[in-house]
């Protein structure tokens, strides 16, 4: 979440401070006056977001256990993150999670929103919306614990499989090397689907109804309406969904920490949990910080093109 705050706020900060200083035109004084009003928020922001960010970058250049005196190691920590196969595998896991946290929820969310949009307002739509949105309200830790039970040997997932005669594929899903990462990913899909559906449903309501009417008069099929009216009209909402869910995927921590702690082996280890493990259990604060900075850059690299593609003006 810190990463998204940085994306959103660093530019505006630089804009506000940088633009005010050199210009001594009329209004310059007013700008300084404005800065006074911004100052309290700016101070809090600088202290709680910028300062930790700067110290993280500083720590990443040292080998440090958090207490003793640190040794300057230059880029060694970064070299390790970017060359060690284990660490690269961890980043790879985060990228796989994007499929589950972003692609599946956005695709299903679009479908659900398009289907629900056509329905008359009533208890069915209200119930469906609530059911889809509930995962967003539940704390991720609680969700992780519940899914841990669902996936366990005697959990609901396996009970349902045996009920339909599929005992053969029943297994402890989170303990199995092949299924652990997809299983964790599906928890993410479940959490993000509600958010995406709700956002997209709100977006659909804003699309000019005359477009739908015109398309229908022109004889467009349901699929064509979806492709040429609904999806283009939802570009901004899709952009928001993709941005938020990608950050959730790349910076995931709670679900993995609660359900698997990165196991079995390192199958589900993600950067968030690895940073935590390095910093607090191995006390490699420098290595952890380097991983955190790489994660932040990764999030930026993933998010900026999405922003450019989806936030263009509609002309």
């Amino acid at each position: 979440m810190t990463s998204s705050a940085v994306v959103a706020s660093v530019p505006s900060l630089v804009d506000g401070a940088g633009a005010a200083a050199p210009r001594r035109r009329p209004g310059g004084r007013r700008r300084w006056g404005q800065l006074v009003w911004v100052a309290p928020a700016l101070a809090v922001y600088a202290f709680f977001v910028l300062r930790p960010l700067i110290t993280s970058v500083q720590y990443s250049l040292y080998e440090w256990n958090g207490i003793g005196v640190a040794t300057f190691v230059g880029g060694d920590n970064y070299a390790k993150v970017l060359t060690d196969p284990d660490q690269l595998g961890i980043i790879g896991n985060a990228i796989v999670l994007v499929l589950f946290f972003t692609v599946i929820p956005v695709a299903l969310g679009l479908l659900a929103a398009a289907l629900m949009h056509g329905l008359p307002r009533g208890s069915f739509t209200t119930v469906s919306r609530s059911v889809l949105f509930i995962p967003q309200v539940i704390p991720l830790v609680a969700a992780g614990i519940v899914w841990d039970w669902v996936y366990s040997t005697n959990g609901i997932a396996n009970q349902m499989l045996s009920a339909v005669g599929l005992d053969g594929i029943a297994r402890p899903w989170l303990a199995d090397f092949d299924t652990a990462l997809p299983a964790v990913g599906l928890i993410g899909s479940w959490v993000q689907l509600g958010l995406c559906t709700l956002l997209l449903l709100t977006g659909i309501a804003k699309i000019d109804p005359s477009l739908y009417e015109a398309a229908r008069l022109d004889g467009a099929s349901g699929l064509q309406v979806f492709r040429h009216v609904t999806v283009p009209g939802l570009r901004r909402e899709i952009g928001v969904c993709v941005t938020v869910t990608m950050i959730a995927a790349l910076a995931s921590f709670d679900i993995v920490y609660i359900t698997t702690q990165g196991g079995p082996g390192n199958q589900t280890m993600v950067p968030g949990v690895e940073i935590y493990r390095l910093a607090f259990s191995e006390r490699e604060v420098g290595q952890a910080s380097a991983m955190a900075v790489v994660l932040m850059v990764l999030v930026l690299v993933a998010i900026l093109p999405v922003q450019r593609l989806t936030q263009r003006s509609d002309q």
């Binding site: 700067i54 500083q58 720590y59 040292y62 958090g66 005196v69 640190a70 040794t71």
Partner: peptide, 9 residues
């Protein structure tokens, strides 16, 4: 960062 203070710890 470059102007930041001494080694942590």
């Amino acid at each position: 960062v470059l102007t930041a203070c001494s080694a942590p710890g």
